[in-house]
Computed example of a mutant assay.
Amino acid sequence: MNQTSFTPRVFSGIKPSGGLTLGNYLGAIKRFVGMQGQMETIYCVVDMHAITVWQDPKELANMTREVAAGYLAAGLDPSQSILFNQSQVAAHAELAWIFNCVARVGWMNRMTQFKDKAGSNAEKVSLGLYAYPALMAADILIYQATHVPVGEDQKQHVELTRDIAAKFNHDFKTDFFPLTEPVIEGPAMRIMNLRDGTKKMSKSGESDMERINMTDDADKIAKKFKKAKTDPEPLPETVEGLKDRPEARNLVEIYAALNDMTPEAVIAEYPGAGWGTFKPALADLAVAKLAPISEEMARFMADPAEIDRILGEGAEKARAIANPILRDTYDIVGLLRSDATR
């Protein structure tokens, strides 16, 4: 079986911790919605990944609903895409254990995100934080997903997923799992901090002015962009002039991503413009694109039972795909099951 033998299928997920930002929307959700109809699409709120660090249980449930509301408000259609939260499909965790036994410790030691998150405290973090790339591989391969839309900072995880799939296939003399392809395209895949263009926009930043929250109303969105840090120089005549100007580049790329343009097209529209011209234009564009989404998110969040219903129906659809793949994996590995559990 080769790569083309697998059903073209997209999988991706967002972790429910700290609330959704503009970075989540432009780097992930907007792209996810755009992929609907192109191939089978499966999107997940990865709540099991969230608990690799301590989470308040009530807040975790609320954040899971907020991420789902963000997907839905941005245009994800549950009749076209499968949307669910990870913990409702036990096959993710079951396949992750098998992958824990396939992956090598050396592979985990090379994962840069663990090093970044653990810092100098690596001996005291959870085993889950260390091993979570194997769960991430299971998230993808339990659906035999062929494509994963990711930012550059997540590409290493897809490479590990490919390594795990290749070793599993080699060890068991099969071609059961695809070598998943990362999909990295378009502007503004890495949205930066509005107060420091060298840092990624984060849910956990110290100041709320650093980020655009997807729950921000129109006034907050406009205020944050108008007060975003810039440098003294106007916009350049060409995109090459954005080199070594992180704040300027970030705002141009945000404008481009919001308006489905390239950064080159933005510069062509605003050559040599001062920030007194460009930032209000960016603020107006952001309000037009984002305020309706935040309003729709608020509507969904006011009806948590409806969100739970959508996630439950999505989980049922996901299990219908995942469980047969898990059963076949058990058979390949040689894990004995009685007829009653098949």
Rank of each mutant, 00 (worst) to 15 (best):
A222I: 06
I42C: 08
E159M: 03
A90F: 02
K220A: 11
L290R: 08
P149G: 11
P78W: 05
A74I: 04
G241M: 01
N100F: 02
E206N: 15
V150L: 05
I14G: 00
L282Q: 09
V252F: 00
R104Q: 15
S338Y: 08
S120R: 01
L83F: 08
R342S: 03
I307D: 05
W107H: 14
D196R: 08
R162F: 07
E306G: 06
R9Y: 15
F176W: 13
E185V: 13
A74K: 06
V89N: 01
K173S: 08
A68S: 07
R110H: 03
P263G: 10
T7V: 12
L282W: 06
W107L: 03
N2R: 15
M297K: 04
A96P: 03
Q86W: 00
A165P: 07
V150P: 10
G13L: 00
V102I: 15
D196C: 09
M63C: 15
M201V: 07
P304G: 07
A268F: 11
Q80F: 05
F225C: 06
V105E: 13
N250T: 09
G106F: 03
M261L: 07
A288D: 14
T161G: 02
K229L: 12
A305F: 11
R190G: 10
K155F: 07
F32G: 10
D139W: 00
S207V: 10
P57L: 01
M201F: 02
S126M: 02
